[in-house]
Amino acid sequence: MEYASTETPAAAGQNDDIFLLKLYVAGQTPRSVAAIENLNKICEVHLRGRYKLEVVDLARNPNQARTDKILAIPTLVRSLPTPIMRIIGDLSDEDQVLMGLNIRRL
């Protein structure tokens, strides 16, 4: 059933969907900084105006690593639209990020 829902007119729905994104980093490491930069770039290009991004610094709040089950740093979680998607790494590979977020290249 889920398969069918993702297949529903993507072009029509694409503009209505809001992407809820959370990026987990740990402190100001080069990798974290790179991840934030890379994600911002991708979002601005591909999701302009229809995404909400929250950056969580687990170094300040380790408990959240436990509650949100985060292992790898950095981790990007797409909680909306469903299903939940996870992408790990500094997001330097744009193709992989787009695939992970299920976004069509413009």
Binding site: A26, L58, P62, I70, L71, A72, I73, I88, Q96, V97
Partner: peptide, 18 residues
């Protein structure tokens, strides 16, 4: 999980620490 670029398992350590 989709992998894009370099990462480590700092999250696991934070998790354990918690």
């Amino acid at each position: 999980i989709t992998v894009s670029g370099a990462f480590d398992l700092e999250g696991l350590f934070l998790n354990l620490q918690a």
